[in-house]
Nucleic acid binder design. Structure first.
Lengths: 153, 153
DNA sequence: TACCGACTTCAAGTTCAGTTGAACATCATC
DNA sequence: GATGATGTTCAACTGAACTTGAAGTCGGTA
């Protein structure tokens, strides 16, 4: 097994050493120690860190990632099955994220054309106003249907 | 001019009063005071708050929003031009956000099929390893081209 | 053997976007 | 005019994801 110092992992994975120590306290990665108490990481840690960064990109918190990574061996590159399992759930997460942003963009486009200033029907601009029954946050943007918040503004 | 109390704005805009006071300290919204030192917000504040929430949804920080909103009058609903200016820049921001996520998703799909375990060509899994020259962060994911980080893993 | 860069721990600090709590004032209603 | 909901300020806290600093150790080269 090839072992890497924390500095080597940091350089090659493109994260700070402090971040790696931090990940370790969170159980996202693991290391062995030398006689002199220095960390040595298995090479698979590089993939783990790449996975962490990719997961963050997808919007996962370190906590969620810790859970996902808990199912992977620390010292080996994940198997095809491991990878399929993770990437599939991330994919669907990405899909819904994309869908949300596309919806927001489309509303925005509608709005640009709609005059928007005094209109009751502007979706993106439709504030929580009048829709205060539905909880907190700008209702439409946070997932309620457009109809549910038809505005009086 | 119709004036709203902080509670009314909070209810109708769907945010906490503490958030409104916080926005005010950041210059995102503004109020007049009654003789008894209570805040009164112009009705246009509802739109401003909706704008803030929409902007956050698009990934803008309150700082960025403060900048954008600085160009709008506090006491009037923004003009069509104001709105067009903002929404167009947000739209392009959304466009690139979406493009990024779609790229990530596509890589993920490729990866699911590719076997991925020991392959040099897996984009999403291609760690910063070997690409340590390019700065910090997982290279490919953070914007470098796929070719630039062809891996040795 | 001396040196220096890379490493260690631990506590504290940072930024963002607010929330919470204490102690007090105001406003609308009975 | 008393009561209670709503408002005020200010300081401190939250949590996520790290970073920074201090004080000291390790490890490879001259």
């Amino acid at each position: 097994m090839e072992w890497l110092t924390i500095g080597q992992v940091a350089d090659r994975a493109g994260v700070a050493t402090s971040a790696l120590r931090f990940y370790e306290t969170k159980g996202l990665i693991a290391s062995e120690r030398t006689d002199g108490n220095q960390r040595r990481y298995p090479r698979a840690t590089l993939r783990r860190v790449a996975l962490i960064r990719a997961g963050q990109e997808v919007g996962l918190s370190l906590g969620e990632l810790a859970e996902a990574l808990a199912t992977l061996p620390h010292d080996k590159v994940p198997t095809k099955n491991d990878w399929e399992r993770l990437s599939k759930s991330w994919r669907s997460r990405l899909d819904s994220q994309i869908a949300e942003l596309v919806a927001l963009r489309d509303e925005l486009s509608d709005c640009i054309g709609c005059g928007c200033l005094s209109l009751k029907s502007c979706a993106i601009f439709n504030p929580g106003d009048v829709a205060s029954d539905y909880g907190t946050g700008p209702r439409y943007l946070l997932g309620d249907s457009r109809d549910a918040v038809a505005a009086e503004v």
